Simulated scan of single mutants.
Amino acid sequence: MKIYAPTIPVCQLDENNYFVGMTTADLDPLVGNGHYLIPGLCIEADEPKFKAGYIAQWTGESWQYIEDHRGESVYIKETGQEIKISEPGELPKTVTTTPYPDSFHHWSEKENKWVMSLEAEAQKQQQINNERQAKINTLLSVSTEKIAAHQDMIDFADTEEERTEAEKGLLAWRKYRAALLKYQKGLISELPSTPKE
């Protein structure tokens, strides 16, 4: 009498016949002639070989390997919009894995990369300059308010200690404002640090 293993390994598939993992099938206790109770969406086959970047799919007779980019971010060439890949398969020709730098770039099929026109480059530089100037203006405004406040503290100090402390603050904020003006004119390259209160 032939002895059968109580379980056998089987390949588990999803609804699209992609390999999910291995599980076991139990020997049918009622028949006992080597018939196994194969769970749903499972097949008797050798486990597919692992191939990085691919997923195995059962064709009905053998394993085929499909590119698997699920979970990866890609960028639509026409708009730069980021999308996450959710299905196995080759990447469409309309996307790239190269991150979209910013709205000033466009995709060049010829160069196979994101590029910037001279006009867009000038626009980007203008935007950078505008943002830099806006930041400087805000900091200048803050420093002018601080200088005025310290001057008031000096003018209406009740004690010599109060006056001395306010004078230190006034000097620090005036130096800071002067440094900001130098930075604005390009005389120094680094944005000065805000005085500590």
Rank of each mutant, 00 (worst) to 15 (best):
Y4N: 09
P6Y: 06
C11L: 04
Q12A: 11
D14E: 09
E15C: 05
N17Y: 05
Y18Q: 06
Y18W: 05
V20L: 07
T24W: 03
A25C: 03
D26A: 08
V31G: 01
G32R: 10
Y36L: 01
I38E: 08
P39L: 12
G40W: 05
G40A: 15
G40L: 06
L41Q: 15
E44M: 10
K49C: 07
Y54W: 13
I55G: 06
I55R: 02
I55F: 00
Q57M: 12
W58D: 07
W58M: 08
T59N: 12
G60V: 07
E61D: 12
I66G: 01
I66L: 00
I66A: 01
E67P: 10
S73L: 00
S73K: 11
Y75L: 00
I76E: 14
I76H: 09
T79M: 01
Q81I: 01
I83A: 01
K84H: 06
E87H: 07
P88E: 03
P88T: 12
G89E: 08
G89F: 02
V95A: 03
T97N: 07
P99N: 05
P99W: 05
Y100C: 10
D102R: 15
D102T: 10
S103I: 05
S103G: 12
F104W: 08
H106K: 12
K110D: 15
K110N: 13
E111H: 13
W114S: 11
S117M: 06
A120G: 03
A120Q: 12
A122G: 07
A122Q: 13
Q123D: 12
Q123Y: 09
K124T: 01
Q126N: 14
I128R: 15
N130D: 15
E131T: 07
E131R: 11
Q133G: 04
A134F: 10
K135T: 15
N137V: 00
N137K: 15
T144C: 00
T144Y: 01
E145F: 07
A148K: 14
A149M: 04
D152E: 14
I154F: 00
I154E: 05
A157P: 01
A157L: 04
D158Y: 08
D158S: 12
E162S: 08
T164W: 03
T164H: 10
T164D: 09
E167Q: 15
E167R: 07
E167L: 04
K168N: 11
G169L: 09
L170M: 13
L170Y: 13
A172T: 11
A172R: 14
R174H: 07
K175I: 06
Y176M: 06
Y176K: 03
R177M: 00
A179C: 02
K182M: 04
Q184H: 05
Q184R: 10
Q184A: 03
K185C: 00
L187R: 13
S189K: 15
L191C: 02
P192Q: 05
P192S: 10
P192V: 00
S193V: 01
S193N: 05
E197N: 11
